Simulated scan of single mutants.
Amino acid sequence: MEAVNFLLNFLFDTYIMILLLRVWLQAARADFYNPFSQFVVKATAPVVNPFRRLIPGFGGVDVATLVVALLVGIGKFVVLSLLNGAPIDVLSFVLIGALFTIKQAGFLVFWVMILMALMSWVVQHGNPIQLVFHQLTQPILNPIRRVLPDLGGLDLSVLIALVALNFLNLFIAGLLPIWRIL
């Protein structure tokens, strides 16, 4: 049973991250024709497109994809509870699913920044994934770079952003004890 729980957790978590990545790509106006962006759109289209016909975007945000991500987050806890014989409480599932989706968004930002930093050391310029990650993280990192003094080519903006994300995660975890189980 533990192996099934692991596999379901992995599948739900990965798909929520891909859904949130789609929202982030659209919000950052990343290159739609990039192969990585095309993968994200094609991986989410079968589930998202029916919702996009019903739920319009708002202010440049793909609300339909956010709703789908929330539903997948709620569905994760419903499926795992049913599988493990836990009681069903709809309100709790909605709250936990929403908190989990928010936490996954922060987790996604964290890992995109880590991967972007690692790729900047290893991968030569022009890699399609690196270009998209650069487009995604610039709105977050540029305000930090404007405040930091010039350190002679050393860019600490990623480190500061990661510390800030971890601080927010711990701060919210302190306010919401249920956050720790997510």
Rank of each mutant, 00 (worst) to 15 (best):
A98R: 07
S120F: 05
L151V: 14
S157W: 01
A164C: 03
I74A: 02
M17I: 02
I102L: 15
L8D: 00
W121Y: 12
V122N: 10
P128A: 08
V40P: 06
V23I: 10
T101G: 03
L54F: 15
V147Y: 03
V61F: 02
V61Q: 02
P143V: 04
F77Y: 13
P87G: 13
A28N: 07
I129H: 03
Y15W: 10
P149A: 14
F171C: 00
T14K: 13
L148C: 13
L66I: 03
E2T: 15
T101A: 00
V41S: 08
L8V: 05
N142T: 13
I88Y: 01
Q124L: 01
V109C: 08
F51H: 04
I129F: 04
N169D: 09
A164S: 03
I88L: 15
P50W: 00
A164I: 11
W121C: 11
H125I: 09
L82H: 06
I18K: 06
I16E: 06
F133P: 12
N169L: 07
R22E: 05
A27S: 10
V68T: 01
Q138G: 00
V47I: 07
P143A: 12
V67R: 09
V158P: 02
L80G: 02
A30Q: 09
V109K: 05
L136A: 00
G73D: 00
G75H: 08
P50T: 03
L91C: 00
V41H: 06
T44W: 06
I178R: 10
L7S: 02
F51D: 04
L159H: 03
A45C: 04
G126F: 12
S81G: 15
L159V: 11
S157T: 09
P149H: 10
S92L: 13
G59V: 01
F6W: 15
A45N: 11
N9F: 14
G97H: 12
V72I: 14
I140C: 06
N127L: 09
I88C: 06
W24T: 00
F51T: 01
V48W: 07
I18Q: 07
N142C: 07
I172G: 04
M113D: 00
L131F: 07
I114E: 08
V123P: 02
F77V: 05
G152Y: 12
L70S: 08
P56T: 10
V163S: 07
G152S: 12
P46S: 13
R29S: 13
L159D: 02
G57R: 03
I144N: 03
L20W: 01
Q130N: 14
N127W: 10
V158W: 01
I16A: 11
V78S: 04
P177V: 14
